[in-house]
């Protein structure tokens, strides 16, 4: 464990708790893409299948359990409890356009052709594009609530910090995982224009609105 990965994990935890809190407090999931949340749920379930078989540390197990639980709770709030506030007209990104190619790629490019490894690879690839429906929804509505933009900033920062963690581990531990690194870079690049908008607008107290 290194500081970059720890801060990254905490930023990730903050992001998903922020989103859950926003939906619960405002009793509304307006502006939140349910499709992205379903894909994140899929990401955690397929990645943490080893939750009970492969004990690494208390921290690792606890965080995995929290991520899965919060993801399921968020999906429940969006599609059941506050279903009436779900903006399905703007959440129109076709998930199958992401899940099918990612599933195919996981079969073709992986470290080991075993079920667990392919599911882990699928999870890594899917996570890199899972935010697209959310970013697409914001581009359609032309704006995002401030709390939602904080959620996205924390979520985007987590993987950017993981890239720094991978550089650190490469030089100090001789560890590198090309699949995770490439997917992590793609994931972070997808946030770039949002990061620009966030820094130039939200940090100056303005609402996040895309140039019409």
């Amino acid at each position: 464990m290194n500081i970059f990965r720890l801060v990254g994990d905490l930023s990730h935890l903050l992001a998903i708790l922020l989103l859950l809190w926003k939906i619960w407090k405002t009793r509304s999931c307006a502006g939140v893409s349910g499709k992205s949340q379903i894909m994140f749920g899929l990401v955690y379930i397929t990645r943490y299948l080893d939750l009970f078989t492969n004990f690494i540390s208390i921290y690792n197990t606890t965080m995995k359990a929290i991520f899965i639980a919060v993801a399921i709770a968020t999906i429940y709030l969006i599609y059941f409890k506050f279903k009436a506030t779900y903006d399905s007209n703007h959440d129109t990104f076709r998930m199958e356009f992401l899940i099918v190619p990612v599933g195919g790629l996981a079969f073709l490019v992986n470290h080991d052709f075993t079920a667990l490894e392919i599911l882990w690879t699928f999870s890594i690839y899917l996570e890199s594009v899972a935010i697209l429906p959310q970013l697409f929804m914001i581009s359609k509505t032309g704006e995002a609530e401030t709390i939602t933009s904080h959620y996205l900033f924390a979520l985007g920062s987590y993987r950017a910090l993981y890239i720094v963690n991978w550089v650190y581990r490469y030089y100090f531990e001789g560890f590198f995982d090309l699949i995770a690194i490439v997917a992590g870079c793609v994931q972070t690049i997808l946030y770039c224009d949002f990061f620009y908008l966030y820094v130039t607008k939200v940090m100056h107290g303005k609402k996040l609105s895309l140039p019409a």
């Binding site: 690494i56 540390s57 001789g174 560890f175 590198f176 995982d177 090309l178 699949i179």
Partner: peptide, 10 residues
């Protein structure tokens, strides 16, 4: 250099 393998990351 060790590739992939250790899934100690979240």
């Amino acid at each position: 250099l060790q590739k992939g393998a250790t899934k100690d990351e979240l």
